[in-house]
């Protein structure tokens, strides 16, 4: 069974879905991604779905649960490149993916993640200063 590759770029993980998602593939992705976040300590996950043409309620729910699992592991999920037809379908299905960040394309999605990483670094920096003082 083929799997969707997960790329690591700095503190972020990038997943591009370029095949039709079927249920087992989605489950495998959730598993792989969780393991990868735990291993690399990534702080952001970018899922690119511009090639995804067909979604059903299961895939929608998978996205939500991937985001929820990532959040537990302190990584933020950004879904980018959703097609208009897919967006309409998800809304009609009642899946508004609340809690997931979205962006129009990879560039904007990455800048969202970068902003978070930067914020966290500053946060950590000040904490460390607190400890030293």
């Amino acid at each position: 069974m083929d799997r969707i590759p997960i790329l690591k770029l700095g503190g972020a993980l990038i997943v591009t879905i370029q095949v039709d998602m079927h249920d087992r593939l989605a489950l495998a992705l959730e598993e792989d991604l969780t393991a990868m976040i735990a291993r690399t300590g990534a702080r952001g996950v970018l899922i690119e779905i511009s090639a995804l043409e067909i979604v059903d309620s299961f895939i929608g729910r998978m996205l939500v649960s991937i985001a929820a699992v990532s959040r537990v592991l302190d990584a933020e999920t950004v879904v980018v490149g959703m097609r208009p037809a897919v967006a309409i379908t998800l809304v009609e299905l009642g899946l508004e993916l609340t809690g997931i960040k979205t962006a129009l394309n990879v560039e904007r999605g990455m800048s969202l993640i970068q902003a978070r990483l930067l914020e966290d670094d500053e946060g950590h920096g000040s904490h460390r200063d607190d400890f030293e003082d």
Partner: peptide
Amino acid sequence: LKTVAAARLMGA
């Protein structure tokens, strides 16, 4: 609200 939600999913 549906329109707004769909636009948000597209990242706008």
